[in-house]
């Protein structure tokens, strides 16, 4: 879990161009100013590329926080 969380953290910082982001499993979109619906699309694409996985539509639509994103990554790996 922590390993994926760390990798995600680096990715979040780059995609959102904000070096101050520190993720926890409980982080939600409203915690990060740059995390709007457009940047969310960019984020999903880059997560998929980074971990070389493809999320299903239903996974993407169900995420409520970063922890659930990590769970999806773990399921797919």
């Amino acid at each position: 879990m922590q390993e994926y969380l760390d990798e995600l953290n680096l990715l979040f910082r780059e995609v959102f161009e904000n070096e101050d982001i520190t993720l926890t499993p409980e982080t939600v979109a409203s915690d990060i100013d740059e995390w709007d619906s457009i940047n969310h699309i960019y984020l999903v694409v880059e997560i998929e590329k980074h971990f070389n996985i493809k999320f299903t539509s239903s996974q993407i639509l169900e995420w409520k926080n970063v922890g659930e994103i990590v769970n999806s990554i773990q399921e797919k790996r």
């Binding site: 969310h40 699309i41 960019y42 999903v44 694409v45 299903t56 539509s57």
Partner: peptide, 15 residues
Amino acid sequence: RDWPAYINSDLHYTI
């Protein structure tokens, strides 16, 4: 094109 991204986010071509 990424079809799920098209359906979920109206992304007609990949970024």
